[in-house]
Design a protein around this nucleic acid. Structure first.
Lengths: 135, 135
DNA sequence: CTTATTGCAAAACGTTTGCAGGTTT
DNA sequence: AAACCTGCAAACGTTTTGCAATAAG
């Protein structure tokens, strides 16, 4: 793989926008530093970075792919309120039990939680408390 | 929801093609019993069946959605050799530990294993043994 | 000089949708 | 009769691809 300004820029953005940006989001930010950049190039580079193991792809059902600079294994939470994807670490014991429960021919495991993220849960709690106080 | 011949046919096919068919596969099979059927109708009915809780959607990263007549929770294995999706049950203890590891605001969990299915593993074993014997 | 990489535009892909006509209740 | 459901075709959003031009080694 040769060096290219565009690929390094894409890599930088995945690191900077650490909250699992989509290709489009990476494109919009990277464009400000490299106005000629095209979306196709962003997609091509994300693919080679994933293949090279420098970036992980995070796929959420029914959503555009997202990209993650964290390489170590972890699960993700898709928030049904705000649509954000956040990390959700699994304890070592749970993780080991999970992997041990399957035969050795399994190489990887994609785990996505669906629910409400901490932020939205906090907001909802505050709103319901304010409502209580008003009555 | 009203009765419709097309929707019942789609439901039947999800049950008959029990190995997680795609919308296209369901369409191809259903068309033989109802030649006028359109793909759009298959998609619309799959969506209402999922919403009604009669069918589960199985999304595999980078693949078209699949549909499952098994309603109880289980994980799926995507085979990197043949592309098939098969069920992979988790022991109750592992499952409970998994759910217990997360706060109560989580409502669902999508777990997809990536690896080689039993069938392909068997085939590969047979092939490598035949190769050994030939030497 | 060779070949990877780019920008651009067109196409591919799975899926949804608007509409006019047909079915179910 | 009212609402729902259908087939059809067009449109959608995401991602890939063919091409001629450019940049890296």
């Amino acid at each position: 793989m040769r060096y290219s300004k565009q690929r390094e820029l894409v890599m930088q953005q995945v690191e900077a926008l650490s909250d699992h940006p989509t290709a489009e989001e990476i494109y919009q930010h990277a464009r400000q530093e490299c106005p000629g950049l095209s979306l196709g190039t962003v997609y091509r580079n994300l693919n080679s970075l994933v293949e090279a193991g420098r970036v992980r792809r995070v796929s959420v059902p029914g959503q555009p792919d997202r990209f993650d600079h964290t390489l170590s294994w972890h699960s993700h939470l898709y928030c049904t309120r705000c649509g954000q994807v956040s990390d959700l670490a699994l304890g070592d014991d749970v993780m080991r039990r999970l992997m041990d429960s399957q035969p050795e021919r399994i190489t990887d495991c994609v785990l996505t939680w669906i629910g409400v993220c901490e932020n939205c849960a906090k907001k909802e709690k505050a709103r319901s408390e304010a409502l209580q106080a008003a009555l």
